[in-house]
Design a protein around this nucleic acid. Structure first.
Length: 294
DNA sequence: TTCCAGCTAC
DNA sequence: GTAGCGGGAA
């Protein structure tokens, strides 16, 4: 199977099996696509769908999100994780509505300059929302291209120059095909060519895969840096603090004694509250009570 | 345990 | 280059 065959098979597989996500198939505005990408950073799409529906229903465009109270934005982010993304998305909305007349810019340089938008998200918006020919490089595409064309697992950390070169080399010349390529390679990585248990039996390009041909060397070995434990970490404590604040009726504050009961270790708790305050996710009042920012 | 459509600050 | 950042699911 040559490169062209692989692209054709993937394209056919995409047509038949693409998940019916609500921001796909031209049903979302460019802003809606961007929101879906930000919500999907380090987060499974299946978890994103209900949040995205609710979010876009409430704030259909950048202008609407820019005008929303911070507390509502943080609350609406719910349990998606990495709540700083919510604040950055709102900052992004502010820039887009004020500097770009509520229309997302169409260039990589302008997109990547927006808060919370990095290389992946900028490229994804250009390809998926604007139909431009750009190599999209995320964890799925890195894994799939590396396996299929190099026969080895991609490594953790940021994409290497070799991986970027590979992604650019394999990107079809045709603008339209390049978009389908990005979509289908990423989708294959998400549902077939997964990290730990790839379903090679039902993979449409198994017969052209160097990784399978080599008997899947190194499958299951740890490729990323060891994860920080969650129990007892600042991340858990920050999550507990925010969860407590989200439960409050709008505009209410959490009294100091209730704040203290969130976590046993008061030193760690205070440090976490300070970092949340730094991030702009909470506000500390002089009397020691706490609330979501306005 | 690892991984998940990453970004940012250091 | 890498630590820190949530929370859920396999």
């Amino acid at each position: 199977m040559n490169d062209s065959d692989i692209a054709l098979r993937l394209s056919a597989w995409w047509e038949a099996h693409a998940r019916d996500l609500p921001w796909r198939f031209g049903r979302a505005t460019p802003w809606g696509v961007l929101v879906s990408e930000v919500m999907s950073q380090q987060t499974q799409m299946s978890r994103v769908v209900p949040y995205w529906q609710e979010w876009m229903n409430r704030w259909p465009d950048a202008r609407a999100l820019a005008a929303a109270p911070k507390a509502e934005v943080i609350t609406a982010w719910g349990r998606l994780g990495y709540p700083r993304r919510a604040l950055r998305l709102q900052e992004c909305a502010r820039v887009v509505s004020e500097e770009y007349s509520d229309e997302l810019p169409h260039t990589y340089d302008a997109l990547i300059a927006l808060p919370g938008i990095g290389d992946y998200t900028a490229s994804a918006v250009l390809s998926f929302a604007f139909g431009q020919r750009v190599a999209v490089i995320d964890t799925n595409i890195r894994r799939v291209l590396s396996r299929v064309f190099t026969g080895v697992e991609s490594r953790g950390g940021s994409a290497s120059p070799a991986e970027r070169a590979l992604a650019n080399r394999m990107l079809p010349e045709s603008v339209k095909r390049s978009v389908t390529w990005n979509q289908s390679v990423m989708e294959l990585g998400a549902v077939i060519c997964t990290a730990k248990s790839p379903l090679c039996d039902i993979c449409p390009i198994a017969s052209g895969c160097a990784f399978l041909k080599a008997d899947r060397p190194g499958l299951g070995e740890r490729r990323t840096r060891p994860r920080q434990r969650f129990q007892g970490t600042d991340r858990q404590v920050r999550g507990l603090v925010l969860a407590a604040l989200r439960e409050l009726p709008a505009h209410e504050t959490l009294a100091r004694k209730n704040v203290a009961s969130i976590w046993k270790d008061q030193v760690q708790l205070d440090a976490c509250i300070a970092s949340l305050d730094d991030d702009g996710l909470v506000e500390m009042l002089p009397d020691g009570s706490l609330r979501l920012p306005h």
